[in-house]
């Protein structure tokens, strides 16, 4: 009985970590089930949606434990997915005890992230690169680089004060657009659209779109539609932000138009 509860807790915690880091639903479901099986559970039921895990374990027709976890949509952490994947592989090859596995899971959760500076620089580099891909020249890349870094700083700060995701996307895309219009109004000569497109790449819901589609076609209709709705809302927010900024600049008689 005690043992069952421990195994269930381990399995669900592993699933929770995966889900929180942006793992696909089928991966979470399979992982939880395999861990339960690896520790000798035979009669179990696991149900995973994009923001929750439900699991019960039975033995000889009697309930031996159940667990519900609410998992809010978190930020993507691919390294953690890979680490947890490795861990679940080892659990399935029976090379670790429940306690060891729990310890390893906590190590996975504490996996270091790149520092703020590294992330900011990476964002700048990405924006510059995307500015170039979409047809920008040196000036556009440089501006995208700066704007991308500023946007990333804004995103990190907004994350810290837990600003609503919709506001983050609207304000972020609006700010980038206003700044680029302001710069061209000040007399700088550059392709203003390339700069904005390069910078808002940071907000584009690529991960949500990809996971949502895959879930939908795996038959996880509920989770798939949650993720796709999220992606659609994000795209709409970006459009609203850009639109609001354009209108604002127009009202104040921007010269760059």
């Amino acid at each position: 009985m005690e043992g069952n509860q421990k195994v269930l807790k381990l399995a669900v915690s592993v699933g929770e970590t995966l889900l929180l880091s942006g793992g696909e639903i089928y991966r979470v479901q399979e992982t939880v089930e395999r861990i339960l099986e690896a520790y000798g559970m035979e009669d179990y039921h696991v149900f995973v949606v994009s923001n929750g895990i439900f699991a019960t374990v039975d033995e000889e027709g009697e309930s031996r434990g159940s667990m519900v976890r609410n998992v809010p949509l978190g930020s993507v952490h691919l390294g953690r997915i890979a680490a947890v994947n490795q861990l679940s592989r080892e659990i399935c090859s029976h090379s670790c005890t429940v306690e060891e596995a729990y310890q390893r899971l906590q190590d996975c959760q504490k996996l270091p992230e790149p520092g703020m500076l590294a992330k900011t620089l990476a964002a700048g580099m990405g924006c510059a690169a995307f500015g170039y891909i979409f047809g920008g020249q040196f000036v556009e890349c440089l501006l995208s680089f700066v704007l991308g870094m500023l946007l990333q700083i804004f995103l990190m700060q907004a994350g810290r004060i837990k600003m609503s995701k919709f506001m983050v996307n609207i304000l972020g895309s609006a700010a980038v657009t206003v700044v680029s219009f302001a710069l061209s109004a000040l007399g700088m000569k550059f392709m203003q659209d390339k700069v904005v497109i390069g910078s808002i790449v940071l907000l584009v819901p690529g991960v949500l779109l990809t996971t949502g589609i895959r879930e939908l076609f795996n038959g996880d209709y509920l989770s798939g539609s949650i993720h796709l709705a999220d992606a659609l809302m994000t795209a709409a927010c970006i459009a609203v932000g850009v639109g609001a900024a354009v209108k604002l600049v127009q009202l104040f008689g921007g010269a760059g138009l």
Binding site: H77, L111, K119, A122, G126, C127, A129
Partner: peptide, 8 residues
Amino acid sequence: LAFVILFN
């Protein structure tokens, strides 16, 4: 690469 870094 930028997204690879941002998504850890």
